[in-house]
């Protein structure tokens, strides 16, 4: 295991800038839709406002609901320590660290699902059920993507296939269109948002911030998948510049996908995820050639 204390700066950057990503995505969507859109810093306002509130808990709920809201951000922070900015080292790195990273996200998801079931609401149960379904299918695709990204030997076609598979997984895992739509007004059609219907106050602030961190980390993966096959930036400032530029590109791509695509029918979602898996298998075949 290697420790890299300079990596804590990248963690702090993530803490500071993560809530900006949803802002950029929403701005891109607004521009595409001909609207002016909410402020870029809306997510910061939301989190701060929520942290200032009191709390309302259903009498059906137990400590599990409260635990879910604190475990989700804790798992995300722990996971952040394992992800490097392209060209640099993460705070902690060892063989197989990406597996632990993926499973830390799994912990957060498990407790979010448990918290949803804790409310006894059928809507939240439905959201948890769908989350369980899609994430179980995403898991092998994600691990294959991470395995392929660690192989390095990959040339152009492999890198392209991996990047597309990664985008499929990250859109599904971060509850974005075409897999999930956080903006509908119908609880029946949402997945992530419906699971947290009964969270309020600081708890919901934690969950919202954890979701932003998760999106940021997938952005880091995207950045690594897109930048590293092309070139390896040297020096702190160029690395940071390239990284932040790729994060903006990432947010714009997600925003464009959301603007240009409709939501998939629920029965089509597994097929889309399996298509990502097929791309990974193809990439492995290319890499072995």
């Amino acid at each position: 295991m290697k420790l890299e204390l300079a990596g804590t700066i990248d963690v702090l950057i993530a803490f500071l800038l993560a809530p900006l990503l949803p802002g950029i995505i929403n701005r891109v969507k607004a521009v595409c839709g001909g609207r002016r859109g909410q402020p870029l810093l809306q997510c910061y306002h939301d989190v701060i406002k929520l942290l200032k509130k009191g709390a309302v808990y259903s009498r059906t709920t137990s400590h599990v609901l409260r635990a879910g809201a604190v475990i989700a951000p804790a798992a995300m922070v722990a996971a952040l320590l394992l992800l490097p900015v392209p060209g640099r080292r993460a705070v902690m790195s060892f063989t197989g660290d990406v597996v632990l990273w993926a499973y830390l996200l799994g912990v957060a998801r498990f407790f979010t699902m448990a918290a949803a079931l804790d409310t006894g609401s059928s809507f939240e149960g439905m959201g948890a059920s769908r989350e369980a379904f899609f994430s179980a299918l995403c898991e092998p695709v994600l691990l294959l993507v991470l395995l392929l990204m660690g192989m390095h030997s990959s040339g152009g076609p492999v890198a392209a296939l991996v990047a597309v598979a990664l985008i499929i997984v990250l859109l599904s895992e971060n509850s974005r269109i075409p897999f999930d739509d956080p903006n509908t007004h119908l609880e029946l059609t949402m997945i992530h948002e419906v699971m947290v219907l009964d969270h309020g106050g600081p708890d919901f602030g934690f969950i919202t911030y954890a979701a932003a961190l998760k999106l940021w980390m997938y952005g880091m993966l995207f950045s690594a998948a897109a930048v590293l096959p092309v070139f390896r930036p040297e020096g702190w400032l160029p690395q940071t510049g390239v990284f932040l530029a790729s994060m903006v590109v990432f947010a714009v791509i997600v925003g464009m996908v959301e603007s240009l695509m409709a939501r998939l029918r629920l029965t089509r979602v597994p097929q889309a995820i399996l298509a990502g898996g097929a791309l990974c298998v193809l990439a492995i075949a290319f890499a072995l050639r």
């Binding site: 498990f110 948890a128 994430s135 898991e139 092998p140 691990l143």
Partner: peptide, 28 residues
């Protein structure tokens, strides 16, 4: 690749199954 993908799928499905077992029996 086979063992990684297999373990990941098993893990994801097991998490789904135990979210169900724990959530339905003990929660709500």
């Amino acid at each position: 690749a086979v063992s990684v993908a297999g373990l990941a799928l098993i893990g994801g499905l097991a998490a789904a199954c135990f979210a169900k077992a724990f959530g339905i029996v003990f929660l709500g």
